[in-house]
């Protein structure tokens, strides 16, 4: 039975050890984390064209960037996601038309000269859906320029576009197995000095591998040790995972969803198998 031991878990970052697994299982989890965890992202952007009147002054709805670039930048902004509140548009009661159960509407209304930030996106309705990372520059407006934009976010997965990718920097390595033969080790401390990840410490006269999680399996200790006292192998049942999220979901929510998704898929696969 696969087990997970959490080493580090913050809002956007997680590090854990997958125990009693197989390489195939570890890769399946990695791929689900990358491409199958749904999140909300801005997908439909409507620009107001023509003059915008503010306090008796006329502003042009023009920006230094093309509207397409502005929409693309808006799409990449991480939007807070709650799997309890929102569903995919195709599964929604509105049958894909767009309603408060499957989409979030934002408005962006700014006059120049200024820099427009992601924090200027105002959610229509639920104030809790305000973008958390409010310092992402979207456009810079000059004097007499203005934007008036309505943007609609919807649920999606990274199979469709990376803006729906909840995680990044997802990866794993095999758990290293390092042993030092005390009969051969002469206490030359070459490994403690030259290991780039500082895995070894001196325990009396012999070297000892201590910070195993830091080991990058580079194998330079094997090269440096003149006495050939070190052996380095990989444990293909244990994997050290690292992952980060973009802030639309927490790391714990993402991992939770990915594991449930994987479980459901394997269950479905077993069901579909013809009885042997």
């Amino acid at each position: 039975m696969m087990q997970i031991e959490i080493i580090e878990m913050s809002d956007t970052k997680a590090k854990f050890i997958l125990k009693d697994g197989t390489p195939g299982l570890a890769n399946a989890l990695r791929r689900v984390l990358i491409s199958d965890v749904p999140k909300m992202a801005i997908d439909n952007v409507e620009f107001h064209l023509g003059p915008i009147m503010v306090d008796g002054r006329e502003y042009e709805s023009i920006t230094p960037l093309f509207d397409e670039i502005v929409s693309h930048r808006l799409g990449l902004v991480p939007v807070p996601t709650d799997h309890e509140l929102f569903v995919f548009q195709k599964d929604c009661v509105c049958e894909g038309e767009g309603c408060p159960n499957c989409s979030i509407m934002y408005s962006l209304n700014k006059i120049g000269p200024c820099t427009v930030y992601s924090g200027d996106l105002v959610p229509l309705g639920n104030e809790a859906l305000k973008v958390k990372d409010d310092l992402i520059p979207i456009i810079e407006l000059g004097d007499g320029q203005a934007v008036l934009v309505y943007a609609i976010a919807r649920m999606g997965t990274a199979n469709e576009h990376v803006k729906w990718q909840a995680t990044h920097g997802v990866g794993y390595k095999y758990m290293p197995i390092i042993s030092v033969d005390p009969k051969l080790c002469d206490g030359g401390s070459k490994c403690t000095d030259l290991c780039p990840c500082k895995v070894f410490v001196m325990d009396g006269d012999v070297a000892k591998a201590e910070n195993l999680l830091q080991c990058s399996l580079c194998g330079s200790c094997l090269k440096f040790c003149d006495m050939k006292a070190i052996s380095l192998t990989e444990d293909d049942t244990q994997f050290v995972f690292t992952m980060e999220t973009d802030g639309s979901l927490t790391a714990a929510q993402t991992l939770d969803y990915a594991l449930k998704d994987l479980q459901a898929r394997f269950a479905k696969f077993c069901e579909d198998l013809p009885d042997a």
């Binding site: 960037l65 930048r73 990449l76 902004v77 991480p78 992601s118 990372d133 409010d134 310092l135 992402i136 520059p137 456009i139 810079e140 990376v162 990718q165 990044h168 920097g169 980060e244 973009d246 802030g247």
Partner: peptide, 21 residues
């Protein structure tokens, strides 16, 4: 031009770090 919203390679949001940096 303007700072990209995300890292080209890994996808981490870097836009918000730029003004602070």
């Amino acid at each position: 031009m303007i700072i990209p919203v995300r890292c080209f390679t890994c996808g981490k949001v870097v836009g918000s770090s730029y003004p602070i940096y």
